[in-house]
């Protein structure tokens, strides 16, 4: 599936760059291992060949757009990234005229950890075959169905067709009536715990937080020029990872994003300590859906 999209994407990026419609085209290139892709900016038609599209194109490109203010930018967006861009447009952080958006219908992204766990050695190759992935590690080849390897956010994605685009690649999927997995199951069961258990859970989770602020840096909706929650490097609270300060950071960040988080889960993906931040951000989404008294 994605092979075809990749070819189309390269062709479109090439033409847009060659025709002068855009100054640069933002997408992904193959990263340092078969399990990694990296955001990539093609600046000349010839560079369009380096673009890739596959089930590992997870990073949200929305966060990088403000860097390119004032330039004409072409980019490939999947549905969840398009939601972030739509929110940034709504908040007037971006100018719509600046972008030429190639929307890509998404069949879900694979969880690299699960892909890696499918074979015994380090993954040396990854090929798509219909709805299946052929994962190789040396001579060993495992064949797994993509739906079984999806990221949690993809398994629970309600609308895989971007809501915002200038042109669409792939076949628009009818919006599934109910998403395959309940997006809020984890939040609901967490909220069923009693308050002291909730407090103990977060205390425990946050005890690993190093205040590296990767979660804030990666977040497309954390666009403040100066974040009042970020402690300076030489702040003693940061150096000692003062537990109450860590707690206050996460509490306040949740409050700041209460209206804006689009649930892309980038914060959780980049957290080096595997803190389950998506639980917090899914809660915000639930709050918005079910306004309470």
């Amino acid at each position: 599936m994605t092979r075809l999209i990749e070819q189309q994407l390269r062709a479109r990026a090439h033409d847009l760059l060659a025709g002068g419609a855009v100054d640069l085209f933002l997408g992904y290139r193959q990263g340092s291992s078969p399990l990694r892709v990296a955001p990539f900016v093609a600046r000349a038609p010839a560079e369009a060949e380096k673009l890739v599209w596959n089930p590992l194109c997870v990073p949200n490109l929305a966060g990088a757009l403000r860097k390119h203010a004032g330039r004409r930018v072409g980019l490939a967006l999947k549905a969840c990234d398009a939601r972030s861009v739509a929110e940034l447009l709504r908040l007037r952080q971006l100018a719509r005229e600046q972008f030429y958006i190639v929307g890509v219908v998404c069949h879900g992204m694979a969880d690299p950890a699960q892909v890696a766990a499918s074979v015994s050695g380090p993954v040396s190759g990854l090929v798509e075959d219909g709805a299946e992935l052929l994962i190789s590690a040396g001579d060993e080849v495992a064949r797994r169905r993509l739906p079984a390897l999806l990221l949690a956010k993809c398994a629970a994605c309600a609308s895989p067709t971007p809501e915002l685009y200038d042109e669409l690649l792939g076949e628009a999927l009818p919006a599934a009536g109910a998403p395959p997995a309940d997006r809020f199951a984890a939040v609901r069961s967490f909220e069923a715990l009693d308050p002291s258990a909730r407090l103990a859970f977060w205390r425990e989770q946050f005890s690993r937080c190093t205040l590296c602020y990767a979660c804030q840096t990666v977040c497309p909706l954390c666009f403040c020029k100066q974040c009042p929650l970020t402690l300076a490097r030489d702040d003693p609270r940061r150096q000692t990872r003062e537990p109450v300060s860590v707690f206050a950071y996460h509490l306040m960040r949740a409050y700041h994003l209460a209206d804006h988080c689009t649930g892309c889960d980038e914060c959780e993906r980049v957290c080096p300590e595997d803190i389950p931040l998506s639980l917090i951000y899914r809660k915000l989404e639930l709050e918005r859906q079910e306004p309470q008294a």
């Binding site: 909220e191 407090l199 859970f201 996460h250 209460a258």
Partner: peptide, 14 residues
């Protein structure tokens, strides 16, 4: 503060 209170609650702070 109604919203903030609900978040406090989520984090287990009464």
């Amino acid at each position: 503060f109604a919203r903030f209170g609900r978040l406090l609650d989520f984090f287990g702070i009464d």
